[in-house]
Design a protein around this nucleic acid. Structure first.
Lengths: 344, 344
DNA sequence: AATAAAAATACAATCGATTGTATTTTATGT
DNA sequence: ACATAAAATACAATCGATTGTATTTTTATT
């Protein structure tokens, strides 16, 4: 009946055994006879006993819990990554606490403290756009709690991360535009404190260099790559005294809003301006024209990151671990970049 | 330095006070002098003390934690709802544990147990497509842990839920098609164990009735409304000996894949067949033609559900609570249903 | 039947914080 | 300076489970 707060002590009292025996029986310890084990399990079931993990974890000094910090759950890349994390965690018997920073440094700091207070055994982080340094992760380091950056990371030594090769991807995206015949290629970049944006930008520059296209500072547009930013960038491009014929945007959100804004201003995509985005959001496949972009396999990144983290938790050999896993990110060619190549 | 596992007892020993004083100081109790409070807080900071919430929660018998169970985090509606839940929870000082059922009953049952073991104080649930009854939630009821269904719910008495008016929305969607001139309207329905699909279907039938259109069983397509289902439904419609001129799909996913399949088979949307979906996924706005659909305000639903749950937790007056909140869901008219009305 | 060895169970400390009660310290008034 | 009230702090039990050690019970051996 009233299965309100049944403890092992209640069961012990009823069956006239010690609570330690109940504990061992429920944990299937070989130290308890099959017969009493069955009695105890039956009674526990009858009373609707449910272990108190707070007490258990406190005593064992082990929580089997991972923390995850992402900027925003509702972004498709992150929810996919979380799905991958969850999958791995679930299979290996870990729980997951998910926190959002909402791109705010202060909330990111708070979540680290919450996770510490909850004694998570490891943390997976993709940092906010406001995060410029490492400080608030020091607490994890001090307490020897392993953590792994995925995607949005800080370039600190002795830290593991699961990333895509943003330089290569940026290079590929830009070279693709060049091959399609673009000469004046703009780049929408994100906050330069974030490694991913630095690297995508570097890839862009390297591709220009390789193909002997002069780098032009005026064609670099810095923003937080939100929807509004894409629109504003598009307006700036329209206002330029010369013709831009390609855009490589460091994310899809800005690429798409720019694409729509350009369409509204009677630019033909890709004939007038070819566009390549980054992330392969779900929208990108169905927008018209469909958006050429870099596919970031979120689920897979989350999966690998969780695997790496759990392996570090398990083999806690005190030594500092610094492992980088690079996941393949591939260009998905769609319509927004299929420019007529030359005029034969 | 080694802030590994600093406890209030460590601080107490160092400062030559009792651990109870340390506890009270850190919790800003008026029973401790400002002077010692400051000493203690300073020392705690110096040592990098971080409260162990496991111990604290165990003792207080209060976790300030909510559980959330959704079918799939990566579905936009759910991640939006979670964002709304998080927002409310964060503001009111609650933590949130998020679990996915992945549409599997077994996993849903497991998550309930996990949440119980973690002593959450309330649970927000949107059930899986396999969930047909209430059993596995009985444990919550027994332990007097309030829970609130949102969106996908079971129709059990003495249970609170935050829903949209699926009947009305189904009615509106169907009537909209009728007004646009459709005479033979197919309906893609989901598992009939779920109230939401029952109600959307009922709304569909009511609209037909009102406008004197005969209900035709052949035009009802039951499935789990996945991408593949939409394609198959479209094929079946194509194969019918008579012409279908409208589709009301109980979700956007199936509506969109059907739309694309029909396009591939040279049907003109909306001229040949008008389509209305349900949920207003992000894709629906950018697909061509853009999809008319019912907007379900996920963030808002999550927010309201969390508020309702927390109010029930706070006012735990033992009495059973049965509160239904109906959130407005509105038709978003887009291109997929703008059929030529008559031929004047 | 006596004794050793093995098996089953009981005892008791512990994890880290909280909190009601008891004790010590400080302040107040005469 | 002394009694008393008030303030500050210390003591000790508690939350519920786990686990090393001690004790009791059973089994095996001669």
């Amino acid at each position: 009946m009233s299965s309100d707060k049944i403890t092992i002590h209640d069961i012990a009292r009823i069956l006239n055994v010690d609570s330690s025996t109940v504990s061992r029986a429920l944990n299937n310890s070989p130290r308890v006879t099959e017969k009493t084990k069955n009695r105890i399990i039956a009674k526990a079931q009858e009373l609707g006993y449910q272990r108190n993990d707070l007490a258990s974890n406190l005593r064992k000094n082990k929580t089997n819990t991972l923390g995850v910090i992402v900027p925003r759950i509702s972004r498709h890349f992150f929810s996919s990554a979380i799905a991958g994390i969850e999958e791995t965690a679930y299979n290996l018997g870990y729980n997951v606490i998910i926190c959002q920073s909402l791109e705010q440094l202060e909330r990111e700091q708070n979540t680290v403290n919450t996770l510490l207070a909850n004694r998570v055994e490891g943390v997976l982080v993709s940092i906010s756009m406001e995060t410029k340094n490492y400080e608030h992760f020091e607490g994890l380091r001090k307490r020897k709690i392993p953590f792994v950056f995925f995607d949005r990371h800080l370039n600190v030594p002795e830290t593991s991360s699961v990333l895509i090769d943003d330089f290569q991807a940026g290079f590929d995206a830009t070279e693709h535009l060049i091959i399609k015949g673009c000469k004046k290629i703009a780049h929408f970049s994100g906050p330069m404190d974030l490694e991913i944006y630095k690297n995508r930008f570097a890839g862009y520059k390297a591709a220009l260099l390789k193909h002997h296209i002069k780098f032009n500072d005026e064609l670099i547009f810095n923003s937080r790559l939100m929807e509004q930013d894409g629109i504003e960038n598009a307006d700036k491009i329209i206002g330029l005294p010369y013709k831009v014929d390609g855009i490589f945007s460091a994310n899809d959100v800005a690429a798409i809003s720019a694409l729509q804004q350009l369409k509204r201003n009677d630019f033909k995509i890709p004939e007038d301006i070819a566009i390549v985005g980054f992330s392969n959001e779900a929208i990108s496949a169905v927008i018209e024209p469909s958006l050429t972009t870099i596919n970031q396999p979120g689920f897979n990144i989350g999966k690998r990151a969780a695997e790496l983290l759990i392996s570090q938790i398990s083999g806690n050999n005190g030594s500092v671990i610094d492992e980088k896993i690079i996941i393949q990110a591939n260009l998905v060619e769609r319509d927004s970049s299929q420019k007529n190549q030359g005029n034969k």
